[in-house]
Structures are given as structure tokens and as C-alpha cells.
Write a protein that binds this DNA or RNA. Structure first.
Lengths: 230, 230
DNA sequence: CAGTGGTCTAGACCACCAG
DNA sequence: TGGTGGTCTAGACCACTGA
């Protein structure tokens, strides 16, 4: 039964799991046996199974073999969105508008979470992301000037701080969290929505090596949804 | 420069990108050249680069070569959470409580999105997810009884519908979306929070092949955050 | 201890597509 | 059309760990 591509083998194995041939918790045949069955090299089966393991469908251990996960937690992949592309994909015209841009002492909470030295000055930015002139999202951001001093010279009304940072320090790691927030007076007036509206909020902190770069809070206009497939 | 493992090569290449050796948009050396540089087989470099491509760091095209993405959209992976495990990881005791369980005509919106036949009866379930007796999340779900008739016999006060479905039809595909919602009277009373509170909401629809299985809306108690790393 | 998955190798063929 | 990445192969050695 010669197949074309490890993807086909992966899909076929996935279907056999779906049909119940291998129940959650049970053991799959060894790679060598599957290779014989599919008449291919073991390496091909290995790639197929590694792919399923990455998706969270199966668990693999040396010597113990490959098992269907007892509680298959399917993993969803989200692209951390670049707002400009998000907006433009709806056909609207994107424009960032800087509301506040001030070099100032960072408040205690920011100093702590970004591990700055006490008394450090940081760049505080507030930006409205506009879609064809209408509010799309409101961003509140702190930037560590020790890490990226050049941002002071960036034309942030043409390119958003997010995109600027992505170009300057592109491959930092970070933490992201999603939540719901009630619009305070500030967010409400920015997004032109009543106080107390439910807003989808994204928090993001990024760093490069040991150096914290930026902390950002983003509030989307009411009705925003973040979608993906599993 | 013999390395141990394609992961090391991947990390090293990532670091070279971070340091700016290859800027966003620029071309990386061909696999064969990198293999020579790292003194390993091309297959090893290939695995390293495929891994970076999956993470959204680079783009690869036959003949055109490998480029650092111009706008590196780092991908975040979220595990679609199983609420019981979520709750238990906080040290609380999980308990699902069925509020409503009724075989009934599906409303038009559900019929349409689940592609049921008009006049089909479906199972309507409302479940409170409790953490040590306190409200954690409220779930509103429709189940296609043609797809999983056996759910009528499931002990849904012991195992949540979600987990039951995961065991019965574990490897369906689906769509997920995250949003913020204002608590209606129903959600507010369920979650013991004021009407209008901002709730983190998850919509999920799953199917197996051509058959739609279930549509679910989940409202978390105020303050819930969904976290991940990038 | 022995069987499993993890990984590397050297070579091969092919699909794709930019020059 | 030639150089690129995508993939397969057959074999090998090793790390891990359950019986």
C-alpha cells in the first residue's frame, strides 16, 4: 500500500483513530510495524507520528510506545495579529493615531513586571488604531528605552509602534493573555462606546534575552472576535 | 562545527536572525550551504528550517529560497482547555451541574450553522461548571443527536458533555472564536455577577467529516484570562 | 535487558518556479 | 532550465525506560 507523502499516512492514521480503531488511551503499533503496513521507510512513519504528537493527538515515549491521548487536547494556533493587516483584510484603510507619547517615570506595576530599575524613565504610548477613520482598537503601551532608544525617532503616525518594534527587535519571546474587560471612561471615549461595554482585551509583554522590551494592553472595539480552526 | 540535534541548529539560526545577521525580508543561505557550515547532512538543516517555518519566523519556497518574514507573525499555540483540568490545576474541586437538558427543535440559527435538516430535534444542554461549589463557567450547548445518539444515556452530572464528546468522537475538527460579551440576565444569575459584566466567551463548533456534532458557547466568570507564551 | 522512539546520514528523485 | 526546498529511503547509533 504505497502512499504519497507522510501527510497521507498522518491523515490515514488520524482517521483510524477517529473511527475508533485505536481508542483514547490505547497503544498504537510500533513505527516499524506501521512502516511495514504502509510499505514505506520508518522515517516516513516517524514524521507522520511526530506531526500528530505536535497537534496533541497522541503521546510518544521511548520504549513505552505511542498512545492515543486519554483526553485529547487539540491545540489551536493563533497568529498574533498585526492590527494593520487585520484591518486591511476587511477592506478598510488602516491608520494609527498617537494619542499620548511621553517619556516618564514608569508606574510601580510596570517597573515590576518589566523588571526595570526603580526610577527608570520609559516611553508611555497611547495609540488609536483606526479603520477608515473609525475606532478599531485602543492600545496602551510602555517601552523600555534602554532596550530600544531609537523608537524616540520613529514616525509613529505612519507605522505603528508594534510594527516598528517588530522590525527593530523582531524575534523576542513574550507572554500573551486574552481576557474581557469593562470599558472604563477612557476606553469608552476612545472607542466611542458606552462606559461598561464588554471589550476584548489582549495583554502582551515581550523581551529579548534578559532585556524587557515592551508591555502592551490592547482593547478592541465591541464585537471583535478572534477566530481559528482546530 | 558539529552540533547535537536539529534543535540546536534551529536555535542558533534563530539567534542569528535575532542579532540581525539576516534582517526581516532577507534571504538565508540555501540548505546545502548551511549544511556545509554546520557540518551536517542537509536533512538536519531541513528539519531545523521547517521548524522555524512552522513557528512563522521564516518563509520557504522552492527555487526562491528561505526568507526571514518581513512581518514576523509569531504564532501562539493555545491548548483548547478542558475545564475540569483548568479548575483542578487551581486546587479546586470540579463539578459539572446540568441546568437544562432537553430534546427539542433547534432554533433557526443553530439549524443553519450546524447544517441540520429543518425540523430536526437536537439536545439542548446548559451546564454550570463549578470550582469547589463556586461558579466558574456557564456553558450553552447544542448536540446533534443524529451524530451522537448515545449522549442521551451519558451521566452528565459526573462527566461533562465536553469530556463525554471528546471520548466518543474525539478527533473532530472545528472552529473556535474568542470574544467579550456583556452578561445578560441569564449569564449574570448563573455566574452570580451583575448584569452587564464583561465575560470572556468562547464559541466552538465541531464536526467529524461531514457531520456536525456540537455547537457550544462558554461564558467564563469575570476575571478569567487565557494565557500563553510566544 | 531489549524494544521503543529520536535523530543523523548520504544519496536520491521530484515539483516548483524565478531568471 | 537550473537551483531550490520537499520528501523518501535504508541503514545506523543512541537514549530512554518498562518488563
Amino acid at each position: 500500500m504505497a502512499e504519497l507523502g507522510y501527510r497521507l499516512i498522518r491523515d490515514e492514521i488520524l482517521e483510524r483513530i477517529s473511527r475508533g480503531e485505536w481508542a483514547p488511551g490505547s497503544l498504537l503499533p510500533a513505527e516499524a510495524d506501521l512502516a511495514k503496513e504502509y510499505d514505506c521507510a520508518r522515517g516516513t512513519v516517524n514524521r507522520a507520528l511526530q506531526s500528530l504528537a505536535e497537534e496533541g493527538i497522541i503521546e510518544r515515549k521511548r520504549r513505552a510506545g505511542t498512545r492515543v491521548k486519554a483526553l485529547p487536547a487539540r491545540k489551536a494556533k493563533f497568529e498574533i495579529p498585526i492590527i494593520r493587516l487585520d484591518v486591511e483584510s476587511t477592506g478598510a484603510v488602516y491608520k494609527p493615531k498617537v494619542i499620548l507619547r511621553r517619556k516618564t517615570l514608569a508606574p510601580a506595576a510596570i517597573v515590576k513586571s518589566m523588571r526595570l530599575r526603580a526610577g527608570t524613565r520609559a516611553l508611555h504610548l497611547q495609540t488609536m488604531h483606526l479603520a477608515s477613520g473609525r475606532p478599531y482598537a485602543f492600545e496602551d503601551r510602555w517601552v523600555n528605552l534602554k532596550a530600544v532608544p531609537d523608537i524616540l525617532n520613529a514616525p509613529l503616525d505612519e507605522i505603528s509602534a508594534n510594527e516598528w518594534l517588530v522590525r527593530y527587535a523582531p524575534y523576542s519571546s513574550g507572554e500573551v493573555s486574552f481576557s474581557a474587560a469593562s470599558a472604563s471612561e477612557r476606553e469608552a471615549s476612545m472607542l466611542q462606546t458606552p462606559i461598561g461595554s464588554a471589550l476584548f482585551a489582549v495583554d502582551r509583554m515581550t523581551w529579548l534575552g534578559e532585556v524587557y522590551i515592551t508591555f502592551m494592553k490592547l482593547y478592541y472595539k465591541p464585537g471583535y472576535k478572534m477566530r481559528t480552526n482546530i
